[in-house]
Amino acid sequence: MIVPIIFLIICIAGSFFTGLPFSFLFDEMVIRLARNLILVTSLILPVITGLGLNFAITLGAMAGQIALIIITNYSIGGTTGFFLSILISTPFAILFGYLVGRVLNKAKGKEMITSMVLGFFANGIYQFVFLLLCGTLIPVKNESLLLSNGVGIINTIDLANIKYALDRLIPVTKYPIATLLVSLLVFLFLHFFLKTKLGQDMRAVGHDMEIARVSGINVDKTRIISVIISTVLAAWGQIIFLQNIGTINTYGSHEQVGLFAVASLLVGGATVERASWKEALIGTFLFHLLFVISPLAGQNLLGNAQIGEYFRVFVAYGVIGLSLVLHAWEKNKARTRLREIKE
């Protein structure tokens, strides 16, 4: 519990220096929670299944973006467009999740670094498809999506058509009620899921693969399912994130998804082996509060807003680095701790 408390103190001290009114911070935090919670939640199952932090949710984010580009291509907008993109993203996410799961099963014991490199690798393929194949092999109907020479998708896609499609689905108050409700549903689903047979199997696999295998649980398949669910949630999460932002940075929006989601979860007090909805909620809140206040705090404290910006990136990487060090250190300690010689 020490990590979230430290962050809470930093945030409280920082927000004091920003001089931002509470109401502004509150509104900002509600919006940020709504648009980030599902992405962070998507990390929980792989942690429980013993795969560690799934940096490859980048692939889920890609699936979401693919769906959004498709609906933009056919100029389908509004609520229909939103739900259609959710629908389209799902098969992509299932396929990607399956592939990620297969790869991670071949890299047991080093899933985290593998999932990270896998994210980079997939990003290369993604760029290849959207820069070279779109407009040449893959026909694009909506020409405004293409770069001036007719090959490749433009860098920034305007999502005006589905902006706030979910956020304002239930138009009471200025807050994104529907999005928060969906996040709540995902939490409830997760809660329910962990009480099913499959959820129990995932916990068993996460605790001890060998015992799970001997007990007759199909370890590899369980791990793959866990990654698939994670990837699908990430795809949906990315769509919800982008409908709030309103534009896609075609070649950039997905890149930092893994980083920020993982950092959020860890800030909430999760570890490589333990995570739940509580850590996701607390972590997302604290991490994004830090995100909002650090540039202003940097400006007011040190006269330089950039320091605050670099500081929050440092925090993201630092918290991941630190928690990985602590995790590996504890595991090592447990391994070498001397057993008492029994008389």
Binding site: K195, T196, K197, L198, A212
Partner: peptide, 28 residues
């Protein structure tokens, strides 16, 4: 949980009817 490992008792749920019996709820 250890005694019933991979032999858990379960109850059918709405989801298990669609996605198969691994989504049945544990009967703790």
């Amino acid at each position: 949980e250890n005694i019933k490992l991979n032999r858990e008792k379960t109850l059918p749920t709405f989801l298990s009817k669609i996605f198969g019996n691994r989504l049945e709820k544990l009967d703790t």
